[in-house]
Design a protein around this nucleic acid. Structure first.
Lengths: 370, 370
DNA sequence: CGATATCATGACATCGGTGTCATGAATGGA
DNA sequence: TCCATTCATGACACCGATGTCATGATATCG
């Protein structure tokens, strides 16, 4: 591949002049500039970043780590969904900055993380982003002080900057809408209790009930590990069956996520219940391939992965900029950023009355969208 | 960050000796080695790849491009699913080679491709992989001769090495299984005709019918653009309705992909048909979040994205190796590699008779799995 | 018209590893 | 005991771009 020296010779100038043409610093005569540009085109010259970064001591590269580094040793089934959208969001935020992204996947193995970080450091990445598959706590090895790190969809105990989904608020808003649609008996099938989303989303559910003065009924709530290979559907069937046989059964069932809602559709119909006429179903995540394709389309809450990615990219850029400026104190550990998404009211929940049953505060807050 | 000179000074040796310790070339005395290793640890030394690659004229980086570069100008709904698995596969194939992956997404904009490739070239990537979202034809700008390119999930008209899913064979195998299970009236709801998978999969369907001596009935076949926002479900409903009202309706419906099968489940049940007792449903892709979660679980064909990624990585590595060796002729344009996946028989299709109705050749070929 | 500012350009050193070659010490066989 | 290896190590140049400083040529101003 052609070098700046080749270009210089071809154009009959010094390498430094070629450099000036490329970077637009220092003055260059018009004829000289034209000659250099011709030479670059003729030789198909592309500047070497290695040489450049060596001199400049800046790589223009940021490292992206994906994969499971769960603190709990549990091995969850790979869904492998959000990563992609988060990564797209990150790239979107980074593209104007001229940064290039290096990516590496741990393939679920904790022991890969350290060597992987070393590889990134050897490329002198200016920052690192770690993306988890689902909202969880993680623990990463110590990094050199001058390499900022941002966590996405996860957090650690050291107060590392993190971008998280606002599970509680999302569920709160959705349940509020259900109540607004006239529902009073609202079932909740939660994700596993050892998952962060299996805790926070139910909190949002209970807060919404409480705010509307609806008592929390334990019979309408169950953690259900629906994605076990065999037992999953059976457990879910059982949980639903219990609720439906109550004296006062639910008129709508909230699911811990869209995937669970998908299974619930099938189970309800196999039980002979029509959705949404006889019973409503709501999801969480706005996993679009499911939520938009389900028949009828699923009412759910958007989990704004893309926006989280953008936030993470922006955050990292500002950390890098701050570091560069040698600014004394970086903004004091701005606690985890929670990003909420809008409720998407589709067709899986019936409107029971013309609303206004409750005195709902006109809550006009714009939900976080990018 | 510490340099090799810092380490050398700290250990009281020359930089070259430090280099020898790192790379294990040339002999080094035991005491010297220990001193150097201590110094490296003490200083937290990580070698700079920039300097190294400059001298070696090898970057150890390969570039990965994702996103839509459709030759047709159509703008499809982003599913954003396969990419991730393909990318994981690629990384799996590459990790032992010491290559690092740079990634960039075109975000669906054709005009991003060229500058993006330049960025990669400026990092002196040793090879490029382009990953498409779904099986399609693409057209990429010319690359320098010494930078190999592998296409995944897509192909071009220039004979660039490509790794493709074997849509035809996959569908063929699935339909053969349906026939083996006693089905004779097999409906097929195809993807849009302008998609490659909307052509190849139906071909596999028809070949399987032909091989079993079952006549192809046009009334049992329809292209259906099911993912249009509003009209999609209606079109699909209509297509199904026509088939079910035939004098001899299908006993099983093959869907162009799992997502369509998901919608078909809902429509059939809304029509009051039970799956799989009254009618079977089969998918394609083994999009696991859907296929495993549907109730009952979906019988489908695995589209081995992960394996395709691995193949692509291996292929690229061999191309790079070949280039290095200055080998005269690279293996003569080994035509596109088609990777097939196994049929996954779950619970969405009824076995109608104890099989053996046909004289099926014992086709024991192992399907391609990694 | 002479002095100073500006312009256009080049020479040279530098970033951090590593290939090449040289050097002195230790080892071994004749 | 002497010469030929082998061992252990260092000096030096080089990869390609760019920051610094220097130089000669114009341009501008008093």
């Amino acid at each position: 591949m052609a070098t700046i020296y080749d270009v210089a010779k071809h154009a009959g100038v010094s390498p430094k002049t070629v450099s000036r043409v490329m970077n637009g610093d220092g003055p260059v005569g018009d004829k000289t500039r034209a000659a250099v540009e011709d030479a670059m085109r003729a030789l198909g010259f592309v500047r070497s970043n290695a040489a450049r970064m060596m001199r400049a001591q800046k790589s223009g590269i940021i490292g992206l780590i994906t994969g499971a580094i769960s603190t709990t040793g549990l091995n969850h089934k790979q869904q492998g969904l959000p990563d992609l959208f988060i990564v797209q969001g990150i790239q979107r935020a980074l593209e104007t900055s001229g940064m290039t992204v290096m990516i590496a996947d741990t393939a679920g193995r904790q022991d890969r993380v350290a060597p992987l970080i070393d590889t990134f450091l050897s490329h002198r990445v200016e920052g690192l982003i770690y993306v988890a598959e689902y909202h969880q706590e993680v623990s990463l090895p110590q990094l050199p002080e001058d390499t900022p790190l941002v966590l996405v969809n996860c957090f650690d105990s050291k107060g590392t900057p993190a971008i998280l989904p606002d599970d509680k608020r999302g569920q709160y808003e959705l349940v509020r809408r259900l109540i607004g649609a006239g529902h009073r008996r609202i079932g909740y099938l939660a994700l596993r209790a050892d998952m962060v989303a299996g805790q926070l989303r139910p909190q949002g559910y209970r807060e919404a009930l409480a705010q509307a003065g609806i008592p929390y009924d334990p019979a309408l709530f169950a953690h259900t590990n629906f994605d076990l290979p065999e037992a999953g559907p059976q457990l879910l069937w059982d949980s639903i069956d219990r609720m439906l046989r109550l004296a006062s059964p639910p008129t709508v069932i909230c699911c811990g996520n869209d995937q669970m809602a998908l299974m619930v559709y099938g189970i309800l119909r196999t039980m002979g219940r029509r959705v949404p006429d006889e019973i409503g179903v709501a999801g969480f995540d706005n996993y679009r391939v499911i939520a938009e394709t389900l028949y009828p389309p699923l009412t759910t809450v958007d989990l704004p992965y893309n926006a989280m990615g953008v936030r993470a990219g922006e955050r990292l850029l500002s950390l890098i900029a701050g570091e560069e400026a040698q600014t004394s104190a970086p903004p004091p550990t701005q606690s985890p950023v929670c990003v909420a998404g809008p409720v998407l009211w589709r067709a899986s929940v019936a409107e029971m009355r013309p609303t206004n049953v409750l005195h709902m505060k006109p809550n006009g807050r714009k939900t976080d969208e990018v």
